[in-house]
Amino acid sequence: MVRGIQRVSWMILLVARLTWAETQYSAEDVKCAYTLNFAKFIDWPPDVFGSPRDGFHICVPAQGAIADRMEALYSGQRVQNRAIELLKLSERDSWSRCQVAYLNGLAHGARERVLSALRGKPVLTIGESHEFNREGGVIQLRHAGVHIRFSVNLNAAEKARLRISSKLLKLAEEVR
């Protein structure tokens, strides 16, 4: 009897975990959520924000499909106790007023230019290209089957004066 219950409960557990793995969310949605979650485990230098009423700026290339997803998902949300302001930018815009710069969707050349413009600025850069960390980007995402993993360029983060929580670092696939 007791053993039966145990076995059944194990089965329930397995089913539950499978369900979570095969999430019904799209990869884009997961990336949106991750971007927001990263911001929750990272501290920006205090001088980044002007007044307490300033929004939390998340910047995304205007032409990418993810920009619309973000707009839909982030509306009304808060992070670091600030309202999220989503800025859809082009390569030529100044990205330095962003707290988070999601750079996937920019062409290779454009991404490099933006990254070099942001070097040393307190902006969390997120990208998906497998070179992103090496190019000086802070967080690099990677598809691994149904999961999405990430790696961190700690050097770039330190230059940008971002303090990344050890909890986040523990989850990283790789910390450079």
Partner: peptide, 17 residues
């Protein structure tokens, strides 16, 4: 949904669904 669990193997106890 259950996303993490620890079950002491020798005890006949499970997570509540």
């Amino acid at each position: 949904m259950i996303v993490g669990s620890y079950l002491r193997t020798e005890s006949p106890i499970s997570c509540p669904p």
